[in-house]
Simulated scan of single mutants.
Amino acid sequence: MSDWKEIAKFAQEIAHEAGNLIRQEREQQTVSLNYKTHQELVTSADLKSDQLIRSRIQQRFPEHQILSEELAPDYSSPELLQSQLWIIDPIDGTVNYARNHQMCAVSIAYAEAGQVRVGAVYCPFLEELFHVIQGEGSYLNAKQLQITMQTELRSALIGTGFPYNREERPKLIPKFQKMLESCGDIRRIGAASLDICWIAAGRMDGFFETLSPWDFAAAQLVVREAGGKIGHIGEVPPNVPPELYGLDLIVGAPAIFDEMQQVLRSA
């Protein structure tokens, strides 16, 4: 077993370093924009942040593997997902970042044997660092987090998001409508890692969306350690670690999780 405290300290340091980089890039107005497939935005700051994080990890832990949004290998590989693996999103919420919104974050997770052991999600524009070690609780800066005690879905504030690929958006509409009819209200922040961490902080009560591992790997552990539940609308394939499987993800306070799952399955 690795020294998770050492890894957590390192993850927090590079999350801060990358966060400061993307903040400076935006303040200095040196950010350039490009597009990946399905009109997915990528900025020069994404690439610089990715390069910084990857280089730091490779220098410190050369034997570890890295799964990154910007330079992603095939994350369907069982061998990769079971390895000593860093899962990074250099800027979660790139559109927000490019439009001068505050809601974006650097997300860094470390996993072993398919389980996330350490996570750090840093929003540099709010100076909020969500950090977690498996079995030791989750924190926002120095404050330990406790999941909201929301007991009724009809009063709950639920987060979600929409895919970049326009062809995929109609599939979400029935789920969105069912949830909107069942919950108190819905929010779309535009950065899934923060959506999920906000559940641990009591700012929202639940969340649903289809995501990639780098979007939620760190944040889901923040929620678990704060007392929340994580699951899926459907079944998880047997060769994929549930903590890294993002299709139809559901996150929520324990008392409303089952009802959320039932509502979404009925859509």
Rank of each mutant, 00 (worst) to 15 (best):
M1N: 13
M1E: 14
W4F: 15
W4K: 14
I7T: 08
A11C: 14
I14F: 10
Q24R: 13
R26F: 10
R26I: 12
E27D: 14
Q28K: 15
Q28I: 13
V31M: 12
L33D: 15
T43E: 01
A45R: 00
L47S: 08
K48M: 07
K48T: 07
L52D: 01
I53R: 04
I53D: 04
R56A: 06
I57Q: 03
Q59P: 05
P62A: 05
P62Q: 06
H64K: 11
E69H: 01
E70L: 00
D74L: 01
S76M: 07
E79Q: 11
E79T: 12
L80S: 02
Q82K: 13
Q82W: 10
W86Y: 03
W86Q: 01
I88G: 02
P90R: 00
V95T: 09
A98G: 07
M103D: 14
A105H: 03
V106A: 04
A109H: 00
A109S: 03
A113H: 14
V116N: 02
R117I: 10
R117N: 12
V118C: 03
A120C: 04
C123G: 08
F125T: 06
H131I: 09
K143C: 12
M149K: 15
M149S: 15
L153F: 08
S155I: 13
S155G: 12
I158A: 07
P170Y: 07
P170V: 06
K171W: 12
Q177V: 15
M179A: 04
D185H: 09
I186M: 08
S193C: 07
L194D: 00
W198Q: 13
R203T: 09
G206W: 03
F207T: 01
W214Y: 12
A217S: 10
A219G: 07
L221T: 00
R224E: 12
G228D: 00
K229H: 11
I233V: 13
G234I: 05
V240K: 11
L244Q: 02
Y245C: 02
I250V: 04
V251C: 06
P254C: 04
I256H: 00
Q262I: 10
R265S: 05
